[in-house]
Design a protein around this nucleic acid. Structure first.
Lengths: 222, 222
DNA sequence: CATACATTCAAACAATCATTAGATTGTTTT
DNA sequence: AAAACAATCTAATGATTGTTTGAATGTATG
């Protein structure tokens, strides 16, 4: 029937996006790009893969139109095509977490002690951060904080954390977050802070998760 | 570094879901299963593919844990693992529609005249349906209506539409919907109704799209 | 118990994909 | 203009996937 020749192209087009999401490397690239623009070099280094391979995967993502790029001198900067792409990554990860026991096991094996996780609801956390009852720190690199960060969060990149400990209050709860549930920066930060006597917990959210929950972000002024 | 051996399995697990979404056939299966439980035979017939091939694709979906199945006598009934899977399909389709010009072109080529589309907001439509100002008809097969349908919608399967025209008011706007934007049932219904002098329009939403917009469905009582 | 039927399994093939290496294109710096 | 560098393109590889075919499994029915 003619219906098939009409409908088949539709599912084929959507499957282009699906195919882009079918590789672990590309998913990791998407998560990194959700933190802000990056060059091929930066992405390849972060994934510990060859630059050529990173380029090939980025080409695949670009073919599916979920990433875009611009050239600036010698470098080419890649970015997500839109906020909806970051949301899709979050939803995909959530479905995986819900239905794949293996993922929950792997997450459990990776994460620190569960009692160091933030248990309060996001709105409550926001209220406490606003009032100054707790201190929220963004332990990602500075440029990612500059692109977008949680409201009332201050930037304290993991690399500088030890040297800048004096900036943190010893008598308040400290909540650290990073790129999302798959990122280890916040875990490392919590371990370090706890060892130094601070009351520190980790928030699983990154900016994409926070936004997917319908909460506002502090964006870079452009 | 050890980080990679910890993180790699996480992205691999999520990519299992991504891989399941990487085939047009499997996406069409997901959309059908979002309408309710189906047997392999029903699904193969709907996709106009071999039963064995349908079985293989369902196996792939089951391996990714996004569909589940039960046996009932000679038949095996497949279903989505959860409502989040239908939502993921909707989000994936939306991202594709936003970023792939080719998809918008294909949709345009397939759909009927744009002026027959419902232009009002969903909440407004709901209000009008509640008050009886418009009539909302669900033109999917009866069993799909029974599984879940839009509030205040009445079942009028496309196959029975012509014979049951007398049930429809000639003086009210009629809004037809089916499985979603990729389904042609509602288009066909609108064409038929318009030809018979009714004021009919199509709603792009299916139940999944409606639910993804945060609106309630009428569910089967269990 | 034999048959029919829905579905899955197993094997095979072509097509596609991930990865690597070498050559090439732009761009900046000298 | 030449050298240095970021990134892409091309070609080749082995691995994975989609599809078809025939055999096997499990369940109902005569």
């Amino acid at each position: 029937m003619a219906t098939r020749t009409l409908k088949d192209p539709l599912y084929e087009q959507v499957a282009r996006i699906g195919k882009a999401l079918a590789s672990p490397r590309r998913l990791e690239l998407l998560e990194l790009l959700a933190q802000g623009e990056k060059t091929v070099e930066m992405l390849a280094a972060a994934l510990a893969i060859d630059l050529k391979l990173a380029s090939a995967h980025l080409k695949a993502l670009a073919a599916a139109r979920i990433v875009a790029s611009r050239r600036d001198g010698k470098y080419r900067w890649y970015r997500l095509s839109g906020p909806d792409v970051a949301q899709l990554w979050v939803r995909l990860r959530e479905v995986a977490e819900t239905h794949l026991a293996e993922l929950r096991v792997a997450l459990h094996a990776m994460a620190g002690a569960p009692e160091t996780l933030v248990a309060t609801a996001r709105e409550e956390l926001l209220t406490q951060a606003r009032s100054g009852a707790i201190v929220v720190i963004d332990v990602r690199p500075r440029d990612e904080y500059d692109t977008a960060h949680l409201p009332f969060a201050r930037s304290l990149p993991l690399a500088e954390l030890e040297a800048r400990l004096a900036e943190l209050p010893a008598d308040k709860d400290i909540v650290a977050y990073c790129r999302g549930p798959f990122c280890l920066f916040a875990d490392t930060a919590v371990r370090l802070l706890t060892a130094r006597g601070y009351r520190a917990r980790k928030l699983r959210d990154g900016v994409s998760e926070w936004q997917a929950a319908g909460l506002p972000l502090a964006m870079a002024a452009r």
